[in-house]
């Protein structure tokens, strides 16, 4: 019954490719981009030290915050999600407002 792990991944990937909507794929792309930016900053802080600590916090929080908000958007617009009864438009407006507030805070704090 055991299958080749590579085949498992291929199966997952092909199923993702076939069944996921394009909107969700775009969201996922954006998520990966935010995740990588966050990881890079974290590595950078280990490399040069935490001197402008407020700048680091602002930069890192901007990626984390964006990531969390985008995850929220993804759950709300996912057609598989039958529990939440919020329209995609409403979800996007929420996402928009939250992002504006987040970036206001981030640019105020970045120094």
């Amino acid at each position: 019954m055991t299958e080749n792990p590579l085949k498992v991944f291929q199966k997952i990937f092909s199923s993702y490719k076939n069944t996921t909507t394009q909107t969700l794929k775009i969201i996922d792309c954006f998520l990966v981009f935010q995740f990588l930016t966050g990881i890079l900053q974290f590595a950078y802080v280990f490399l040069v030290g935490k001197f402008p600590f407020n700048s680091f916090l602002a930069g890192f929080i901007s990626t984390v915050g964006c990531f969390v908000l985008t995850i929220n958007l993804r759950t709300l617009v996912d057609p598989e999600n039958k529990e939440t009864k919020v329209s995609a438009k409403r979800a996007f407006v929420d996402f928009l407002i939250c992002n504006v507030i987040l970036h206001l805070a981030v640019f105020n704090y970045i120094g």
Partner: peptide, 11 residues
């Protein structure tokens, strides 16, 4: 501060 440019860039 030059050291903090990556953080500005990320934001």
């Amino acid at each position: 501060i030059p050291v903090a440019y990556p953080y500005y860039l990320s934001a």
